[in-house]
Design a protein around this nucleic acid. Sequence first.
RNA 1: GCCCGGGUGGUGGAAUGGUAUACACGGCAGACUUAAAAUCUGCUGCCGAAAGGAUUGAGAGUUCGAGUCUCUCCCCGGGCACCA
Length: 839
Amino acid sequence: MEEYNPIKIEKKWRKKWEKEKLWNIDVENAKNPYYNLMMFPYPSAEGLHIGNVYAFTGADIHGRYMRMRGYDVFEPLGFDAFGIHSENFAIKKGTHPKEETEKNVSHFREQLKRMGALFDWDREVDTSKPEYYKWTQWLFLQLYKHGLAYRAKAPVDWCPSCKTVLADEQVIGGKCERCGTEVIQKELLQWFFKITDYAERLLDNLDEIDWPEAIKTAQRNWIGKSEGALIKFKISNFKSQISVFTTRPDTLFGATYIVLAPEHHLVAKLKGNIENRGEVEKYIEGSKKKNELERTDLAKEKTGVELKGIKAINPANNEEIPVWIADYVSASYGTGAIMAVPAHDDRDFEFANKFGLVIRNVIKPQMIAGDKGIKQGNLTDEEFADYGERQLANKYDDILEGRRVYTGEGKLRNSGDWDGMHSLEVKGKIIESVGGEKKINYHLRDWLISRQRYWGPPIPIIYCEKCGIVAVLEKDLPVELPQVEDFRPTGTDKSPLATVKEFVKTKCPECGAEAKRETDVSDNFLDSSWYFLRYPSTDFKDKPFDEKITKKWLPVQMYIGGKEHAVLHLMYARFVTMALRDFGFIDFEEPFTKFRAHGLLIKDGAKMSKSKGNVVNPDEYFDSYGADIVRMYLMFLGPYEQGGDWRDEGISGIARFLKRVHTLLFQVKSDNDKNRNESLSENDLERATHKAVKKVTGDLENLQYNTAISSLMEFANKIQQSKEGAFYRLEAVKSLVKLMVPFCPHLSEELWHEALGYKTSVHGEKWPEYDESKVAENTVKLAVEINGKVRSQIQVDVGMSEDAVKEMALNDEKIKKMLNGNEPQKIIVVQNRVVNIVI
RNA sequence: GCCCGGGUGGUGGAAUGGUAUACACGGCAGACUUAAAAUCUGCUGCCGAAAGGAUUGAGAGUUCGAGUCUCUCCCCGGGCACCA
């Protein structure tokens, strides 16, 4: 027996597998298709990140498990190679994105091949290749033809560093998702996708897909459905009305003033009647200068100006109320105007207090003891109870008298005929009584897909003086991205492509006259919104995806990726899939039936980052330990869906374990060959085998890889220590090797051939089955408790009668002593678990 | 502020309401070795000499029994946010 040399054996087997194309799938004829997808990486110049390896290993283990369960597992991988991330890197390095990307992709591919995954490299996808982005452009045209793509002038977010506009989803806390620069607002003519048309379906379908609750919640919050009403307020001595959106029509009687956003269109209309015109204009100018971040900073004190001479009329009680403008009201949400109810809204309350406006309580709060607002601090329990009650009483009075805000529900007061009714039951009726209408608002905005950048698919649109906006004909696709020397973003609201005369100049597909091309490229997230449809159909050059193949393989049965895409890629892909279904190209509307998010890998308790210098380079570890050990360690260091902490010391545990298994296998085989079958004592090992199969199988089903590995260790230790005959030990190690296949595919293959002597691949083996009846033990140790505290242990036969167990427990020496003659009040027996004697 | 995670030994982490600390790292002791590495064996959460006792962020509750369920609160990580 040679010593375990992972580097050597991994090289040997990978070569063989590659030669035999063991992982390639016959997409047309596969009988039992299973589409196992993982989020494809973008090929950064730094090379493969250990975080990629972590994500892909977990996904690959799932694929390998399903493969042994008899599925034809399709596990493709490709590269999200177009986009700002790749381009920014090229800019930094002073290379061209095309060369840079090609170099990085081949580097990535070589690194990925060392992982020992099931990747089907015959079906690789590269989003920056014309044969791919031709169909990304085709997708744009389909959306355009069906009225879901439109061009509009709108205030949009602009990243001054990336020199391009961004979609709403790509602005994180007022900053660019890619580079962290604060975005500014610009008014530009841009292309949008009408994702808002799908808001309701995006929301509804969430109930039917098997995704983590956290991701679903994130999408629900992002879509931000809010049900309320539009209510019109008349303006005294004026024809126009102010329409406001509110989710609390029940508080209408408490609306003591109106606030308009500074950009509200009525402000200009009312100008003639505003007495303090100068002050108002100055305020509007001031708020224009602030960026979104300054305006939405919650810590900031609220500002505003009253429109003197303008009064609105509250339709509920015909009271004249003042009208203000303030930048805490956003023009882009609802109607850009609100009815302020300071007694029942935190923001209005703060504003009213600052400017001395009327605060009128109209909802009687339901107060309960232990209310959140009272803190115990360093009071004793008694002091706190007393203080709490007084606090509560004070708080209640404060609310009724408008000294404190209350945003909850309750019974109405100060509301005319509605007094005494509950806020939840009057909402609809109050809307009706003032002639308002029910209205649903969404936070979700249309997807802005124009980018003033170079490294992306040109938007396939032509502008003709006569015919206007004309789509590029499908037969003329792709609109190839020209090779450009200076590809850097211009910062002029135009893409670098605008400077390429021979690209811009074209003929109108309708009238043949000279025309100009659109020079922006599309958002990188459009590339990745449909890539899963391409993988199974890469053979087809004349269509994005084949109908028959798509029917066979999609929707994706398992998708694994990071949670950072919760409201980005994962939502865009759902939208695109729904649209393609509506256009009749596919017959399902959710792309990923099941999605699981892996956790984040950290190093020594801290996030990995280049600046901290704590980035783990997978190559180093592949070189010194081999892929099997790295794979298994990654999966062992924590629960896959929660992430974990990489510590260099930890990897030795796995290295030792695999080495031990290697030795064990050859030992057991040689014992068996020498026919050392003398002791055929118990069926201990058989039970251990069934137990291990059960546990590992269950854990794999739930992606609980860390506990699966610890069971494998226990099982291996058990075999090692077993005194049973070699025949039984041999049977046990055969199961062990099979159970290890998903985690360490190379070593398993090596042992299957070299130690166990098989001529066929272990990867063709069936996943071992277990027999529930063989898992059970014959005897079991019971804990004997007195009043819930463990006092002794007894050994009983499984299934022993309750009375027998009781008797045995009471006769236990230790228990007898502890009871000291006391008569037990009650004895609780939980079968095979515990006896609790209550005295 | 709201919505998700999470808080268990020196460390990473296990525990269908039923013997908390599985599995591993690290540590200690021993064997082998001229020596070291590797390997193997044993011990190893805390206080205590022991008997025993306390213990899963804090406090209360439900229960024969709570890391697990309920309530209140604290802390850490992430997401959303003047969205009316």
